Amino acid sequence: MPADANAYGDIFGGWLMSLMDMGAGLIAARRSHGRAVTVAMDGMQFHSPVKIGDEVSVYGELRKVGRTSLVIGIEAWRRPRHQEIANKVTEATFTFVAVDEDNRPRPVGQE
C-alpha cells in the first residue's frame, strides 16, 4: 500500500523484512510446538525493488534445529500485478529460540 512505500513507489525494506520475519516465525512456532522469538537475522541484500501493487510471496525452509534454537532460510519474491514471471527480491537467514511462559529458552524437542 502507499503508506508502506517511499516517494518513488518502492516498498520499504523494513516492511519486507517484517513479512519475512512473520513467515519464519510461523515455521519456528510450528516446529517448536510453542512460542519462539527472533534472535538474529543474517545476510539480507536487496536485489530489486518491490513496487506498490506487486504480489509478494515469502518461502521458508527449516535449515537447522538445535537444542533451543532453529535456523530458517527465507526468500522473498515479487510478481508485478499483470505479469506471470516472479523475481527473487531478497533472502535472509533467521535464527529463533524457543521460549517458555517466562521467556526463558526451552528445548525444541526432537521429531
Score class of each variant (00 low, 15 high):
32 S>T: 06
22 M>V: 15
29 A>E: 13
11 I>L: 07
3 A>H: 14
82 H>M: 10
13 G>F: 04
17 M>E: 02
15 W>I: 12
76 A>C: 14
4 D>F: 04
73 G>C: 03
34 G>T: 03
105 P>W: 03
26 L>F: 15
11 I>V: 15
2 P>L: 13
88 K>F: 08
62 L>A: 06
102 D>Q: 15
76 A>G: 11
1 M>R: 05
1 M>H: 07
68 T>Q: 02
77 W>D: 05
96 F>Q: 06
57 S>F: 03
50 V>E: 02
7 A>E: 10
37 V>K: 06
23 G>E: 13
46 F>K: 09
110 Q>G: 14
65 V>D: 05
98 A>W: 01
64 K>H: 14
9 G>W: 13
79 R>L: 01
96 F>G: 06
83 Q>R: 15
90 T>D: 07
88 K>C: 12
107 P>C: 12
2 P>F: 12
69 S>F: 04
53 G>S: 04
105 P>S: 12
34 G>D: 05
27 I>H: 13
96 F>E: 03
43 G>N: 14
52 I>C: 00
23 G>Y: 02
8 Y>D: 14
33 H>V: 05
61 E>S: 14
6 N>K: 10
21 D>L: 08
108 V>L: 11
90 T>G: 04
3 A>D: 09
55 E>N: 03
85 I>R: 15
37 V>C: 08
24 A>T: 05
13 G>I: 01
59 Y>P: 03
82 H>I: 08
97 V>T: 06
94 F>P: 03
104 R>C: 11
8 Y>E: 14
28 A>H: 12
12 F>C: 04
39 V>G: 02
14 G>L: 11
5 A>C: 11
83 Q>G: 09
30 R>F: 12
62 L>C: 09
84 E>K: 15
109 G>R: 11
93 T>H: 10
83 Q>I: 04
54 D>M: 02
78 R>D: 00
71 V>P: 01
102 D>V: 08
67 R>S: 04
50 V>T: 06
24 A>E: 01
108 V>H: 09
6 N>G: 12
40 A>R: 08
68 T>E: 01
55 E>P: 01
58 V>T: 11
108 V>A: 10
6 N>P: 13
29 A>G: 08
59 Y>N: 12
103 N>P: 00
65 V>Q: 14
76 A>I: 11
90 T>C: 15
91 E>F: 01
16 L>G: 02
59 Y>S: 14
66 G>Y: 05
2 P>Q: 12
81 R>C: 04
62 L>T: 11
2 P>H: 13
39 V>L: 05
79 R>V: 00
60 G>Q: 05
6 N>S: 11
19 L>I: 07
50 V>D: 00
77 W>I: 09
74 I>W: 03
105 P>K: 06
36 A>E: 02
97 V>F: 06
11 I>T: 09
63 R>P: 01
100 D>R: 04
51 K>C: 05
44 M>A: 08
